[in-house]
């Protein structure tokens, strides 16, 4: 049975671009500080070369990488579990059975608030961190999905039901 993948909001692409731009600006600030404090090895790598590299990397990440990642990202809730696919170069499709979800968390960072999107993180008993995080959801939709999931978890058939089937 093929899975009906749902795409994240289109503002998620802008969010990814803004985030990579922000990261690159931090790197630029670091380079600038090292230049003005004299730590930067001017005689080894002239400033224009590092500038060129910086521009290339920035363009790569914010134009190519972010859109590619956005295009592949998708999530789906089927009868048996939550599915998430993500990744730009290395693609990952993750499936979590609904009856293994321990708790659900709604998350929204400062930057995400600016773009009007939120994340929904689901945890299982397996690993330490968040196990499945659906990015780029409208806050309302994320809340709705959260309620749905919690409802499903709460109404999980107990062992007796399956024994008597």
């Amino acid at each position: 049975m093929p899975i009906d993948w749902l795409a994240p909001e289109s503002s998620y692409r802008s969010y990814l671009q803004a985030r990579s731009l922000l990261n690159m600006l931090i790197i630029a600030a670091l380079i600038a500080t090292s230049y003005f404090t004299g730590v930067y090895p001017k005689h080894l790598v002239p400033l224009w070369i590092i500038g060129l590299i910086w521009t290339a990397v920035t363009l790569f990440f914010s134009l190519y990488f972010a859109s590619r990642r956005f295009l592949f990202t998708g999530y789906a809730k089927t009868a048996e579990g939550m599915h998430l696919k993500r990744g730009a170069m290395i693609r990952k499709i993750r499936g979590v059975p609904l009856n293994r979800i321990q708790h659900v968390e709604y998350k929204q960072s400062f930057l995400e608030r600016g773009f009007g999107i939120a994340r929904l993180a689901m945890y299982t008993a397996g690993s330490g961190g968040a196990d499945l995080t659906v990015p780029g959801l409208l806050p309302d939709k994320a809340m709705q999905l959260k309620a749905e999931l919690l409802n499903t978890i709460a109404h999980e058939p107990s062992p007796e039901d399956s024994h008597h089937e």
Partner: peptide, 9 residues
């Protein structure tokens, strides 16, 4: 099993 991943570089 808690979760299943498919990974493809």
């Amino acid at each position: 099993i808690q979760q299943i991943d498919l990974r493809q570089g």
